[in-house]
Simulated scan of single mutants.
Amino acid sequence: MFSQGQITFGILFAIAFIAILVFAYRKDIKLHRKYFKGSIWVLIAFISFIAMIAAIKFFLG
């Protein structure tokens, strides 16, 4: 399906992309703590809502 070169490129690209994301996040961590304080509750509510919809679909469908 994919050639060896495409697989190698994909893996190296993913590693580089994740490394850049981690570096950028670490650089801005003080700003994140200041401006996004309490945003974890929004994430928890969103995941709970999606889980509730999945549970309803599982039990009723």
Rank of each mutant, 00 (worst) to 15 (best):
I44N: 06
S3M: 11
I53T: 08
G61T: 04
K27A: 03
A54E: 11
G5D: 08
L31M: 14
F58N: 04
M52Y: 11
F17M: 14
K30W: 02
I7G: 01
G10L: 01
Y25F: 14
F58P: 00
F49T: 04
A45E: 00
I44K: 12
K37T: 09
F13S: 02
K34P: 01
F2S: 10
F46R: 07
G38S: 00
A19T: 12
S48I: 08
I50V: 15
Q6H: 13
K37L: 10
F36H: 09
Q6G: 09
L12D: 01
I15D: 04
S39E: 11
F13L: 08
Q4K: 15
V42F: 13
I15M: 07
I20N: 00
I50G: 00
V22F: 07
R26I: 03
S48K: 09
F9Q: 06
V22S: 04
S39L: 13
M1L: 13
A16P: 02
I56Q: 02
I53H: 01
S48Y: 06
Q4P: 01
T8N: 01
V42L: 11
K34S: 10
G61K: 04
F46S: 12
A16Y: 02
A14N: 10
K57F: 03
R26Q: 13
F17D: 04
F13T: 07
A51M: 08
I15W: 00
Y35D: 04
K27Q: 09
A19Q: 06
G10A: 05
